[in-house]
Design a protein around this nucleic acid. Structure first.
Length: 262
DNA sequence: AGTACCACCTGACGGC
DNA sequence: TGCCGTCAGGTGGTAC
């Protein structure tokens, strides 16, 4: 379900479990998740090597191999990582399995296979090729304002546009706009001067909070939209019914009282 | 430039 | 029980 916070938690998980361990074998259960590499080629490149470190950019997690290249993980809507020892614990929808010399395995799990694994030679070039904007947790207020200001689309689709800012998806766009008390359909070009700072501050606050909560909905404060983001959900602030509207094909949840239409 | 729609995939759920 | 439409925290292409 991976947006920036989810992928950051996966990064922490990868770092905690899978660094500096020699890869003994690579098993591709479904090659449709491989983007620019065949199963045999992937195995040849990874076998005998170790993941030394990792980086995240937007919704992409890149693992750096001691052989001098990167393995990029994108998770689509249903991707995740799972580290385990016994093969009986092998999770369902496991698509690629890295097996380490210590007997443990790291699975790339993806039920719907909308994500992909890709071998990347140059990280900067990869980000450029994907036309990704600055990462939502690295961008500063000045660049953020520059990127958002004057856009003709809605603020929600602007926040979700990976070419402008990388990392925000449907859930966190809604959360950020809820805290900013801005209707998701508001045209970015109609935002007022103070709105950019407000949205920027809430973007940082919400993403960092989600990471601290390990994206566990149970651990989110009740004042957040996420625990209430479902049909029948009530706004934790006004206690009124939440409403939904379609924006660029995705369902936006918002509180019509707190987030008045502009 | 921005949006609408479709495609890629699987599975859960509700209605008939 | 089975079939069907709809929906789901993503993204890329294409047609307006």
């Amino acid at each position: 379900m991976p947006e920036l916070p989810d992928v950051q938690v996966y990064k922490q998980y990868l770092d905690a479990t899978s660094l500096h361990k020699t890869i003994k074998n690579v098993k591709v259960e479904d090659s449709r998740v491989l983007s620019n590499v065949t199963p045999g080629k992937l195995r040849n490149r990874l076998k005998g090597h170790k993941i030394e470190s990792s980086r995240r950019h937007g919704k992409y997690l890149l693992a750096f191999l001691d052989a001098g290249f990167w393995l990029s993980f994108h998770f689509g809507m249903t991707g995740r990582l799972k580290y385990f020892k016994k093969m009986e614990k092998d999770p369902a929808h496991d698509r690629v399995l890295l097996s380490f010399v210590n007997g443990y395995h790291l699975a790339y799990v993806s039920q719907r296979m909308l994500g992909e694994l890709e071998v990347v030679e140059d990280r900067e070039e990869f980000i450029k090729k994907k036309e990704m904007g600055e990462d939502a947790l690295s961008i500063d207020l000045e660049s953020f304002t520059k990127v958002v200001k004057g856009r003709r689309g809605s603020i929600k689709s602007t926040l979700m546009n990976q070419k402008l800012i990388a990392g925000i998806g449907n859930i966190y766009a809604d959360e950020i706009l809820f805290h900013s008390r801005i209707h998701p359909k508001t045209q970015a070009s109609k935002l007022r001067e103070g709105d950019f700072q407000k949205i920027f501050n809430n973007m940082t606050k919400v993403l960092e909070k989600a990471i601290r909560c390990q994206v566990d909905p149970e651990r989110f404060p009740d004042s957040y939209l996420l625990p209430h983001r479902h049909q029948e959900g009530k706004c934790p602030r006004s206690h009124g019914n939440l409403e939904t509207v379609k924006i660029s094909g995705r369902t936006a949840y918002f509180c019509p009282r707190c987030q008045a239409q502009q």
